[in-house]
């Protein structure tokens, strides 16, 4: 009996000696999990395609007299883009579902209504930062916006005003704050080849047609948000940007 009592006490003492270690280990694991989750979330939300301006300018307004800088060179907005025409479509002008596909491998965008191709043209995706892949929804359309980012240290800095026909997209993994969009690009003409910091660059002429066609339908004004009755068009991005 005494032997049993001593043995139980010994076991209790032995167990007690393990408790602080287990607690510490559990705490460390919890902290690691927390930090890992926080880093993942932080990385997803902290990166913005336009690292300086991000999505600050959501007014959609034209800024007269402002062009910009791209890769250390001054660039001017073509006069033809200084006064974009008002969208002419009205809600409910088509019943077929709309879908925008971007193939990074071929650097091409194709827009569908149902099974019919509405338009198809070359684009420029991420050269200095990857363009995300997946299914996205357009969450805002802006007639103009300001984009600034890149790095002066490696000559990738840009500061571009009046970026025309911008349509920001997002999903559960790429939040709105990440600032990825389809937009017109007036500072280069090398479409069909990667040229962006993660967005999808489009020739202004093509961007205008896509902007007018895509949902949400704009009723005029510089900014259009989707509503349950007027949702943003689905955008699917697949493939891998070629290493050129």
């Amino acid at each position: 009996m005494k032997h049993k009592t001593i043995s139980a006490a010994k076991r209790g003492h032995h167990l007690a000696s393990w408790i602080p270690g287990a607690v510490i280990l559990a705490i460390v694991l919890i902290i690691m999990a927390f930090v890992s989750t926080w880093l993942r979330m932080h990385r997803a939300t902290a990166y913005c395609a336009n690292s300086v301006s991000c999505i600050r300018d959501l007014t959609g307004q034209f800024e007269p007299g402002k062009g910009g800088v791209f890769m250390g060179h001054q660039v001017n907005l073509p006069a033809s883009l200084a006064a974009l025409r008002e969208p002419r479509r009205v809600l409910g002008d088509t019943t077929a579902s709309k879908h925008i596909f971007v193939d990074l491998s071929t650097q091409r965008l194709t827009a569908y209504e149902g099974n019919a191709v509405v338009m198809s043209f070359p684009i420029s995706s991420g050269r200095w930062h990857v363009t995300p892949t997946g299914d996205f929804r357009i969450w805002i359309k802006l007639r103009y916006t300001h984009m600034e980012g890149g790095s002066k240290a490696d000559d990738t800095y840009y500061n571009l005003y009046n970026v025309p026909y911008t349509m920001f997209f997002y999903n559960d993994e790429v939040p709105k704050s990440a600032g990825f969009s389809l937009h017109g690009a007036y500072w280069h003409n090398n479409f069909g080849h990667p040229m962006s910091h993660g967005c999808v660059n489009i020739r202004p002429e093509d961007a205008g047609k896509l902007f007018e066609w895509a949902d949400p339908v704009s009723s005029g004004g510089n900014t259009t948000y989707p509503t349950p009755e007027n949702p943003g068009t689905l955008v699917t991005i697949t493939g891998t940007t070629p290493d050129e």
Binding site: M71, H188, N190, H193
Partner: peptide, 24 residues
Amino acid sequence: VTGWDDPSLLHVMTYTADKTLGPS
């Protein structure tokens, strides 16, 4: 020559002498 990287810069792609892809 694929296009213009800005208003005065053409994007030029090359092969090396042994016909492998060279720098741009």
